[in-house]
């Protein structure tokens, strides 16, 4: 097989470029790398009684639009509540200071995310602020337990 050096070099160049482009495309289109990777952001803190299956990197939505990501989750040693750091894009720096956060589930078996609902306060959330109103995740076992309890107590009447 006689292939000229020039043709070989062109083919190798195309191959390496295609491989690099494939890696780049994987990073860009297949993974979540690009969503809120860059740009200014600020952090607010929420305390939740129970975060259920929330994980670091979960999206934060307001009105269905993604505005940030969960940055860190740890247990507060004093209150034994979950302390969640919410990293929000600086494009949305005018959220009212009484904005509330709920832990929601996308679909029946989907992953958990944080839904924010704006309040009516004239002041806005600043970096490092703490959310006043939070709502824990719904835990299916607790719901079933409560349902059974209600059933049982209702049956006496």
């Amino acid at each position: 097989m006689q292939t000229s050096q020039r043709a070989i070099e062109i083919a190798v160049g195309l191959f390496v470029a295609a491989g690099a482009a494939a890696l780049f495309a994987l990073a860009l289109y297949v993974s979540n790398l690009t969503a809120f990777a860059g740009g200014e952001r600020y952090t607010v803190i929420g305390h939740f009684q129970n975060i259920g299956g929330l994980r670091e990197g979960a999206p934060i939505d307001m009105a269905g639009v993604q505005i940030g990501r969960v940055e860190a989750i740890e247990l507060d040693k004093q209150t034994f509540e979950a302390r969640v750091e919410l990293s929000i894009s600086a494009d949305y720096d005018n959220l009212p200071s009484d904005t509330s956060a709920k832990i929601l589930t996308s679909g029946l078996l989907g992953e958990q995310y944080i839904g924010m609902e704006p309040g009516g306060s004239p002041t806005t959330l600043q970096d490092g602020d703490e959310l006043m109103l939070t709502q824990s995740a719904l835990i299916l076992e607790e719901l079933i337990g409560q349902f059974l309890y209600d059933k049982a107590s209702g049956g006496d009447e």
Binding site: V16, A18, G19, A20, A22, L23, L26, V30
Partner: peptide, 16 residues
């Protein structure tokens, strides 16, 4: 050593 990761990336992208 150079070719293998590039081939794998192409494989994955085409698979997706």
């Amino acid at each position: 050593f150079i070719a293998m990761p590039l081939l794998a990336a192409i494989f994955i992208l085409l698979g997706v």
